[in-house]
Design a protein around this nucleic acid. Structure first.
Lengths: 136, 136
DNA sequence: TTTGGTGCAAAACCTTTGCATTAGG
DNA sequence: CCTAATGCAAAGGTTTTGCACCAAA
């Protein structure tokens, strides 16, 4: 699924939206809406939780942030290069490394075609313990 | 993560557990606890929603069902061969095909080691339109 | 001015937990 | 009998929605 809707982007640039975007810029880890909300508050730029959710949805629709759902069902967001890629996430400290794996894309397409499926998309995330966390 | 705990399996075989298991046996698609609960009721074998959840957790712990979290954060279950594998799911009709992709396992381990990560696990699901649904 | 954006409070959802009751072994 | 399992009701946690007010353009 290579996106689709022309993504009727936001029409007004507000203080809140700018704040949400800027916090995301400064983060490398996947973060939940609630955590983002806390960060904003501590940072002094108060933004309603509802607005954080709405801003993130908008950014996601516009393809400006990656969305990931944890095994617990919580939705996490992260700014990203608009290209397709995956992540290697440390399950202890959350450190994230972007991975471009054309090999997987190729494999996925082959498998799909083999079964007659079309319009393929896929989700793939790697989890593990990073050097720092596994040394303990 | 290739499971772990000897999975202190259930100690008693009850009418409810049997019912949940049998419904899963007859299904090829990933199904939510709530839908399973509805199916059971319509089928005449009433089981409390709580029990459905608990039974599914037990089955998941025992490695007898696959667990998958949708993009909406809903948890879906499906009976499966206990080996590690992935799925190719039709996003229209839900038809599911099991895929054994050692290639991905190998690739994931390589990438992880390359970054010094250990104790690797991963999630991978393919979505697309099956032959029947894409012909329309 | 116009209309999209904001945010509080409340609702909607899915899932888990407390606890008295039931029933498998 | 003994204790795991059940199921209702209530709690918990995340995300969405209703609506009056605010502010970007």
């Amino acid at each position: 699924m290579s996106s689709d809707a022309p993504a009727t982007g936001p029409q007004r640039q507000t203080r809140q939206r700018t704040a949400v975007q800027s916090v995301l810029e400064g983060r490398d880890e996947f973060t939940s809406a609630q955590d983002l909300h806390d960060l904003l508050r501590r940072q002094g730029t108060a933004v309603g939780l509802t607005t954080v959710y709405r801003s993130l949805q908008a950014l996601a629709d516009a393809g400006q942030v990656d969305v990931l759902v944890t095994a617990e069902g919580q939705t996490l967001y992260r700014r990203c290069s608009s290209e397709h890629h995956h992540h290697l996430v440390c399950r202890t400290c959350g450190r994230t490394i972007e991975i471009a794996g054309p090999a997987v894309e190729t494999w996925a397409d082959a498998i799909a075609r083999e079964h007659g499926f079309s319009d393929i998309s896929h989700t793939l995330e790697l989890f593990g313990s990073c050097p720092a966390c596994s040394s303990g």
